[in-house]
Design a protein around this nucleic acid. Structure first.
Lengths: 107, 107
DNA sequence: ATTTATTATCGTAATATTGCAATATATAAA
DNA sequence: TTTATATATTGCAATATTACGATAATAAAT
């Protein structure tokens, strides 16, 4: 127990759940919003901006990268993170399809 | 540690995270999809449909109810669950606003 | 080559989530 | 009232997540 039984669900259900899970933390929401506000991808000011320790931010960035929601470009000793727009749009579309197809018959 | 630091984030960020968290489990996705497919809200056939124990389904339904995504109507000894359409649409709009406002400047 | 700055990884503690058996509650039927 | 059925709650074990200190890795600057 304690582990999600992914085997009994289909690919779409598991993929949606993974996407939602990555987005299910306020720090990651805040990171995405902050990244999108910067003109020039000034990135790990993220640590200064959000009030969490550097390893914690690094871990959150890794999770966001795990579904390609963001990409990081190494620029010298800094890394410039930004939103991966094609994937972002793809996910938005996926979620809208889910919401639209799953709103039917009610009591 | 081990607990999300909600205090350091704003209301919108925390609300979005809560919504995403409720949706971040394939069983709950499957329940929502199944409910929407039934013409007549035949509800706890959910237990038969999804391959999880009755208490587990009951718990997932509770979490879906916690953000008003579904509502349950008692009908005799059965309970008829269905999607709460106004809330469903509201959340879809909220997520779209998030996706649209958070897709800007990239490297 | 050494120092400094930036980011990533490891290890760990605290807490949360998932799932289920056992049990409680509620309602219909007998 | 007893019995049967449907759903909810409780308690618990296994695992996952969140956060951070310590440390490693990388690369620019001296």
């Amino acid at each position: 127990m304690g582990v999600t039984k992914t085997q009994i669900f289909n690919l779409e259900q598991n993929e949606l759940a993974v996407i939602f899970k990555v987005l299910s933390n306020p720090a990651r929401i805040a990171i995405l919003q902050y990244i999108s506000q910067q003109d020039s991808c000034i990135c790990n000011d993220i640590v200064d901006e959000i009030g969490l320790a550097q390893p914690t931010i690094s871990q959150h960035l890794k999770e966001l990268k795990s579904i390609d929601l963001i990409k990081g470009e190494v620029e010298g000793k800094k890394v410039c993170y930004c939103i991966n727009l094609p994937k972002w749009t793809e996910i938005q579309t996926l979620l809208n399809i889910f919401f639209n197809t799953t709103k039917n018959n009610c009591c």
